[in-house]
Design a protein around this nucleic acid. Structure first.
Length: 463
RNA sequence: UCCUCGGUAGCUCAGUGGUAGAGCGGUCGACUGUUAAUCGAUUGGUCGUAGGUUCGAAUCCUACCCGGGGAGCCA
C-alpha cells in the first residue's frame, strides 16, 4: 500500500487528520516524557517531526529500537506544532519498525560530513540533506530539459551507445569488445584481429551522439539527444566524469545565431523550472553550499548573455590589466583562466564566445568567409567554465571534404556523414551540454562527483 | 597525466624526535516540547602501506597506495 508522501502533509496536512507515513529516521531527540523523531521519505528537504508521548505504553518498546537510519511506518494524528522549526507534526499512535539501524556502526551522524567521506559511502549518502537536495534538483533539471524541447517541437531521439565511429575529437574512447582478454586474436603482423570480435570491427562507447543526431535532424528538422556519454580520458578534476549525461540538440535550417538563441533560452528555462519546483532545495544550496546560488540564478534568468567573437575576446584579454599565466595570442586556445576572467570578472554573466580559429576546432564546424575561423560557440559560465560547446555545421560537401582531408581523417569512414551533404543538405547547427555541469552550475556544488548518484571516474566505480 | 597539499579514534582535526589528544558521534545517566537539544560520566587508536635513519619515529628519509585542490583535455 502506498501512502501520500511526507511533502504532501507538510504542504497540505490539516490538524486532527489521521495519517500514515513511511520513511527513514533522520534524527531522534529524547526527553524524559517525549521522544521526537524526524522522518524523511526523500520527497522534501524538510522531514516530518513525529512526536511520541512515552505515556502511550505500547510505543515505548518500539521507540527504544528507533535510531538514525531505521525504516518505519508511523500512524497518528497531525497537529499544529508548538515548535519553531515546523508548522505541523505527527502525534504517533502506532509505530512499526521495518529495519533497525545500529547506531554504533551507522556512519551518518547528526553533524556535517565532508563530501570526500560521503563519497566513500555512496550507498548511504542519498539519505543526507545535501544529496537529497542535489538529486531532487537533478530530477527537476531532467524534467525541464524534456519539457523545454518538447514544447518547442523537438523530437527526442536515441543515438547509439556503442559506436564504430572512431571520430576525431573528444578524448579517449572506451573500447567495447567480446574478446577473452587473456587470448586476443592477432593478425600475422601482431595487430588485433577485430574481424573475429563481436561487431567484426573496432567498437567503442560513444563520446557524442552529434553525427547521428545530424542524420535525424535531416528528417525531423529539430531533434535532441539526452543520454549517457563516455570519455576514457584520464581526467582527475572537479568537472570531469568518465560517464556523464549529455544533451545535444540539432536543428536543420538554423545558423549560429539561432543556435545561441536556443542555448540561452534553454538555460533560462531550466533555471526557472528548478527555482519554481525546488525552491526549498535552492534556498538550502544558497545557505549551506554557496551563497551565490540564488544570485547566479537571478543573473541567468534576467540578463542577456554576453556574445562576442574569439577575435574580440583575444583583444579584450590583451587589454586586461592583469597578468595571465598562459599567453594570449590569436590562434591559441583560451585557457581556463581566460574564460573565467571573461565570464566572472569582465562581463559577470554567461558569455558566448564565437568564431574560433579553424585549427583549434573540429572538422565539422562551418568555415567562415575569412577562411580562418569557424562558426563555433562556447558558452562560459561562472564557477563551472565551459558548459556548452556547439557550432553551425559545415553543410557544403566540397568544403567538408577539404576539411576532413586537412584533419588527416579518412573519407570512407564518414561516407554517410558526407551523404547528408549530397542529398538535401541544409544549414544546420547544434550544441552539446554536459548535464552534470548544468546541475553543478545550478546547485553550486563544487565537485561534479557530487551531482551524479554513482560517479564514474578513474579508479572510481565502487557503487 | 603533471603540479601541489594531505592521510592520526566512527567523523572533523590538533600534535614537527621523548608517556597518542580534543570536539563531535556511540554508550550510560539527568532533563519543562526538543529540533546540530542541553548537562554529567564513559567508550574509543596497526598514527595510509612497506622499508630505512635513530638509544628512541605520528614526527626525519625513500618507495608505493589513496584522497583534496589546481592544470591539461573537454561537456
Amino acid at each position: 500500500m502506498t501512502y501520500p508522501r511526507i511533502v504532501h502533509f507538510l504542504r497540505q496536512g490539516k490538524p486532527d487528520q489521521l495519517v500514515t507515513v513511511q520513511g527513514w529516521i533522520r534524527t531522534k531527540r529524547e526527553l524524559k516524557g517525549f521522544t521526537f523523531l524526524e522522518v524523511s521519505d526523500g520527497s522534501s528537504l524538510q522531514g516530518l517531526q513525529v512526536v511520541i508521548d512515552l505515556e502511550i505504553v505500547q510505543l515505548v518498546d518500539s521507540v527504544r529500537k528507533c535510531h538514525t537510519g531505521a525504516s518505519i511506518t508511523v500512524s497518528g494524528v497531525l497537529a499544529t506544532s508548538p515548535g519553531k522549526e515546523q508548522s505541523i507534526e505527527l502525534k504517533a499512535q502506532s509505530l512499526i519498525i521495518h529495519g533497525e539501524s545500529d547506531p554504533g556502526s551507522y556512519p551518518l551522524q547528526k553533524k556535517r560530513h565532508s563530501f570526500e567521506f560521503l563519497r566513500t559511502i555512496g550507498h548511504l549518502r542519498p539519505r543526507t540533506n545535501t544529496y537529497g537536495a542535489v538529486f531532487r534538483v537533478r530530477n527537476a533539471c531532467a524534467w525541464a530539459v524534456h519539457q523545454f524541447f518538447q514544447e518547442q517541437g523537438f523530437l527526442w531521439i536515441h543515438t547509439p551507445i556503442i559506436t564504430a565511429s572512431d571520430c576525431e575529437g573528444s578524448g579517449e574512447m572506451f573500447t567495447v569488445t567480446n574478446f577473452n582478454l587473456g587470448q586476443i586474436p592477432k593478425n600475422p603482423n601482431g595487430s588485433v584481429d577485430y574481424s573475429q570480435d563481436f561487431f567484426g570491427r573496432p567498437a567503442y562507447l560513444t563520446v557524442s551522439g552529434q553525427l547521428q543526431a545530424e542524420i535525424l535532424a535531416m528528417a525531423f528538422t529539430n531533434v535532441y539527444t539526452f543520454g549517457p556519454t563516455f570519455r576514457a580520458e584520464n581526467s582527475n578534476t572537479s568537472r570531469h566524469l568518465a560517464e556523464f549525461w549529455m544533451i545535444e540538440p540539432e536543428m536543420a535550417f538554423c545558423d549560429l545565431e539561432g543556435n545561441m538563441d536556443l542555448a540561452e533560452a534553454f538555460l533560462k528555462y531550466v533555471f526557472k523550472v528548478v527555482l519554481t519546483n525546488c525552491s526549498a532545495d535552492m534556498e538550502f544550496f544558497d545557505a549551506r553550499i554557496d551563497n551565490s546560488v540564488l544570485a547566479v540564478a537571478d543573473n541567468i534568468i534576467n540578463n542577456e548573455f554576453q556574445r562576442l567573437t574569439y577575435t574580440d575576446a583575444i583583444a579584450l584579454l590583451q587589454k586586461a590589466d592583469r597578468q595571465f599565466e598562459y599567453p594570449v595570442e590569436w590562434g591559441l586556445d583560451l585557457q581556463s583562466e581566460h574564460e573565467r576572467y571573461l565570464a566572472e570578472d569582465l562581463f559577470k554573466r554567461p558569455t558566448i564566445v564565437t568564431d574560433y580559429p579553424t585549427q583549434i576546432k573540429a572538422f565539422y564546424m562551418r568555415l567562415n568567409e575569412d577562411g580562418k575561423t569557424v562558426r563555433a560557440m562556447d558558452v562560459l559560465v561562472p564557477r563551472v567554465g565551459e558548459i556548452i560547446g556547439g557550432s553551425q555545421r559545415e553543410e557544403r560537401l566540397e568544403v567538408l571534404e577539404k576539411r576532413i582531408n586537412e584533419h588527416g581523417l579518412s573519407m570512407n569512414q564518414y561516407w554517410w556523414y558526407l551523404d547528408l551533404r549530397r542529398y538535401g543538405t541544409v544549414p544546420h547547427a547544434g550544441f552539446g551540454l554536459g548535464f552534470e555541469r548544468l546541475v553543478q552550475f545550478i546547485t553550486g556544488m563544487a565537485n561534479i562527483r557530487d551531482v551524479i548518484p554513482f560517479p564514474r571516474a578513474p579508479e572510481t566505480i565502487e557503487f
